[in-house]
Design a protein around this nucleic acid. Structure first.
Lengths: 239, 239
DNA sequence: CTAATAGTGTCTATTAGACAGTATGTT
DNA sequence: AACATACTGTCTAATAGACACTATTAG
């Protein structure tokens, strides 16, 4: 947006006399549902590990909800956009930088926060867990987190984030934000399966994602079974 | 959300000493992209009128952007959720009540508003124009509005609302919020066509919407051509 | 050889697109 | 009768689901 130019002297005067302090205090916060997929190791040398969808939570050091787990987030500062707040809080509270983010929705219930009137904008962030160096935050399985006694309305926000991702996974490329640079089709299928919470048929899956991936020429090895081709993400023209 | 209960005396103390006035002032506003379809009359007694997608705009009486057209909206009050703000401002600025609303997204550019730091949450609202009694607002064709010199970043918001609706029209029932109680299949198809901005084939359209509509038994008459069945909306089990 | 996953081929069901063809009112 | 729209039927193309079948490794 270009800088606003007052139309006349009268308006300059109006803006000079406008006192923001006259309004009842209100704060805006940003909360991030940071999701990734963790691949559990298998006990059997033949079997491949079962992946789990994980969410990043931070233990609160201050009132309110002191000691409870919460989504990483914080207050929007005077000179920041919400996206900048998101970047800053993710960096300081979790050590993360350069994460894929998308705005989820904004919550304005009057009594959300006992400190003051707080309106909060929720985002979801997707990343490859193996590349993420977390500092003061912990990963929890999503299935567990939504049943924990989280701070504020954060359990609800996690559920809504999941639903949004579930709705977008089939017509966008957002999954690849949770994948490593290189992966097998089965790795990818497993991520779809935990997000959608249902088994997919391999043959059909291969067909539908074929436009979004590209063969690296490499193969897996030492997996106790037939090696798999290794792919990378490829932006497809359609979609 | 249930009411928050402090965990201990220390927290009660903390909350009592918490001073919201310490924060830099910030306001939250709500803007509504109110859309409906206006059916132009035809010059030819045989031809049916061509519909147009319309958006509701309000001429600003105060600085900033005084005299410019803007989306209806206003500041979120201390004791209101954003949805309540939306209902209130639509009622006072346009006379509308009971409108379908959906949250679009929240904009937090630092210099959006020359008065003070304002974060704004945009909604879109869909209604049947013929049922709407507008007071201080005016309908403009969307195609015209997005090229007008609107206040703030409102032209962008209208474009984004359109895009959102375009994306949702085929897998939700939102269109019916813009339709009268009773309508012909062609009325409905025309609304799809202006939202999607392309011609649809009648036969295929009839098939795909058949689950969402229900025959009223009535027919049109005096249209200069074969009468059409009149339908009403029917919630379908799937979707 | 066996277990486990990798990958292909093909049949079927469903759905979208195209379009011809029929129906029926008003003037 | 002519026009404009209403409505149906059917062929085709594209896509998703199901599932059998083949391939290939480590142990």
């Amino acid at each position: 947006m270009s800088k606003y130019v007052p139309s006349c002297k009268e308006e300059v005067e109006f803006l000079k006399n406008y006192n923001p302090k006259d309004f009842p205090p209100l704060a805006v916060t940003v909360d991030a549902v940071v999701l990734g997929v963790f691949k559990n190791a298998s006990d059997n040398y033949r079997k491949s590990g079962t992946p789990q969808l994980m969410v990043l939570l931070v233990k609160r050091n201050d009132f309110p909800y002191k000691g409870k787990y919460a989504l990483p987030g914080g207050f929007v500062h005077e000179d920041e956009t919400m996206e900048e707040t998101l970047g800053r809080t993710l960096k300081t509270k979790t050590g993360l930088t350069d994460v894929f983010n998308e705005q989820l929705y904004t919550i304005s219930d009057v009594d959300r926060d006992p400190r003051m009137r707080v309106i909060s904008c929720a985002y979801f962030s997707l990343l490859d867990i193996d590349e993420a160096e977390i500092t003061d935050a912990e990963w929890f399985p999503v299935s567990e987190a939504i049943n924990m006694d989280l701070a504020f309305d954060h359990a609800t926000i996690i559920k809504d984030a999941l639903e949004r991702i579930r709705g977008k996974i089939n017509y966008t490329d957002i999954v690849f934000n949770m994948m490593p640079k290189e992966f097998t089709i089965n790795d990818l299928q497993q991520v779809y399966e935990i997000v959608l919470d249902k088994k997919l048929l391999g043959a059909a899956f291969r067909r539908t994602i074929s436009d979004s991936i590209e063969d690296t020429g490499k193969m897996t090895s030492n997996e106790g079974h037939r090696p798999a081709r290794i792919f990378r993400y490829k932006k497809s023209s359609e979609k």
